[in-house]
């Protein structure tokens, strides 16, 4: 074991000092990576886990610090869905789903065409159009609340579904156009050219070649649009009624089984119900969602 390093050592001896040092360094680097990864994993998952665990605790054991509920129960979910207590969670879930689907469909119906034009066509003022859509995506929702509050009061739309769907378009549509445009820019458009040469019209090429190719991009965008709509709170908290309120608003104003007591466990149960479908969806489509999220921001 010589401490003198020579090129011969490096080349031949598997236990030579530089090699060992390099291996040690690599091992330390990999340990550091795993420790950091574990810290990130815990930081992201621990609060979420705490919500799920609390959802299964008896109300009396709300502040139990065990990692597993000592008195597991499903009562909190019953409370969360209890109409008698004024928790319209079932109704709210339907509302969120309905609003989300409507907004997503409208956003995609308009957004697909705009994104296609922005990604594929040359036309005057293209840059201005892009700017307008970008500007719209950064628009603060609170600037819409006041005029819409008054408008919807005047025309008797307060608390209706259309009063919740229409304002949501303001942030979902720019999102769909933006994400789809970046997806469309990366698609193999030579195929469209080929179809055109083979005698397809523009619209035929679009329907027969581009749409099937674009389906994954559209699907990812739909997920992002739906999540954006599902998570909206500010507009809905001002414009919804008890009958049309989405889950975010319902959870923020929850009533528990015990009067004069913050219904932590029931809220955590409701939060779990609201979140689990999203989390499952996100985990299944993880790659696509990451691609969609970053398509807008980085490209």
């Amino acid at each position: 074991m010589s401490t003198v390093t020579s090129t011969a050592d490096v080349a031949t001896g598997p236990d030579s000092a530089p090699k060992r040092r390099a291996r040690n360094r690599a091992r330390w680097a990999s340990i550091r990576t795993y420790v950091s990864a574990a810290v990130i994993f815990l930081w992201c998952m621990a609060p979420f886990y705490w919500m799920m665990v609390t959802a299964f605790r008896e109300v009396q054991y709300t502040f139990e610090m065990t990692l597993w509920p000592t008195h597991p129960t499903l009562n909190n979910f019953v409370t969360a869905f209890s109409e008698e207590l004024g928790n319209h969670l079932g109704r709210a879930l339907f509302n969120s789903l309905f609003i989300g689907v409507c907004v997503t469909v409208i956003g995609l119906a308009a957004g697909v065409f705009a994104a296609y034009a922005l990604a594929r066509m040359e036309f005057p003022y293209k840059f201005m159009v892009l700017g307008v859509i970008l500007g719209a995506s950064m628009f603060p929702g609170v600037a819409l609340v006041t005029p819409l509050f008054q408008l919807f009061t005047d025309i008797g739309w307060m608390g209706t579904y259309q009063a919740l769907i229409i304002p949501s378009i303001s942030f979902v549509l720019p999102l769909t156009v933006y994400v789809l445009t970046s997806f469309f820019r990366e698609m193999p458009w030579e195929l469209e050219e080929a179809a055109r040469i083979d005698g397809c019209t523009k619209s035929q090429a679009f329907r027969k070649i581009i749409m099937p190719l674009a389906a994954p991009a559209v699907f990812t965008t739909a997920i992002l649009a739906f999540i954006a709509s599902w998570n909206e709170y500010l507009l809905a908290s001002q414009l919804a009624s008890d009958a049309t309120q989405p889950v975010t608003v319902a959870i923020a104003s929850f009533a528990g089984s015990q009067p004069h007591q913050e219904p932590y466990t029931a809220v955590m149960a409701a939060g779990t119900v609201v979140t689990i479908p999203l989390v499952i969806m996100v985990l299944i489509f993880q790659r696509k969602i990451v691609a969609g999220l970053t398509a807008g921001g980085v490209k």
């Binding site: 990130i40 992201c44 998952m45 609060p47 979420f48 919500m51 999540i227 599902w230 998570n231 709170y233 889950v247 975010t248 608003v249 959870i251 923020a252 939060g271 609201v274 979140t275 999203l278 989390v279 969806m281 996100v282 985990l283 993880q286 969602i289 990451v290």
Partner: peptide, 11 residues
């Protein structure tokens, strides 16, 4: 890492 992102802000 996507889990906190997916949870609605209200929740």
């Amino acid at each position: 890492v996507l889990v906190p992102w997916a949870i609605p802000t209200a929740v």
